[in-house]
Amino acid sequence: MNKLFSGTGSTDRLILPLPEYPLSHIFFFKSENMGNIQTNSAKILVFSTEKISDPAIDMAGLLKLHYPPTVYSISIPCSSGIKPSWILYAYEKGFDGVFIAADGSDCVYGESCTEKTGNLVGKTHELMKSKNIDPARLRMAAICSVCSESFVKQMRTFNEYLLKTAPNQTPNP
């Protein structure tokens, strides 16, 4: 009767009631309120940067600013290092949209980042057109290290746009 273990998975913790403690009151389990998976969110690949936009995306989580759970980010050192081939590969494999959370003028590798990221986006847009992919499925915005709200807003509006327009939008499993 004393071999009670707590529920949260602190599995190594043996719980004992105080001698006068009513046992029946030791455990309560909150009814788990499983949210329904949103079947209506687009798959978005975010290229984020380790020092600038990643902290903003992390802070969005910390502040519990919600955005669609089908947004995934891959972290890289600098947004000007993204190869257009990666973006095209993402569409080919089934991502609805790609978002570049760019360093902007905050980039730790220098001012040229903004221009170079712009160039690679331009180049990718050309490639997308040639492959008949809607260029609006690639978006870029500068996300500073505390721009959590702006990131979340971007994700929500991009998601809405993609749900409306993306031709190969397939419902998530």
Binding site: S6, S10, F27, F28
Partner: peptide, 17 residues
């Protein structure tokens, strides 16, 4: 706390939430 004793919040007098 994550390593909390009751796995929920309750008042010690009678265990009511």
């Amino acid at each position: 706390a994550p390593t909390r004793p009751f796995n929920t919040i309750l008042r010690p007098g009678d265990g009511k939430m």
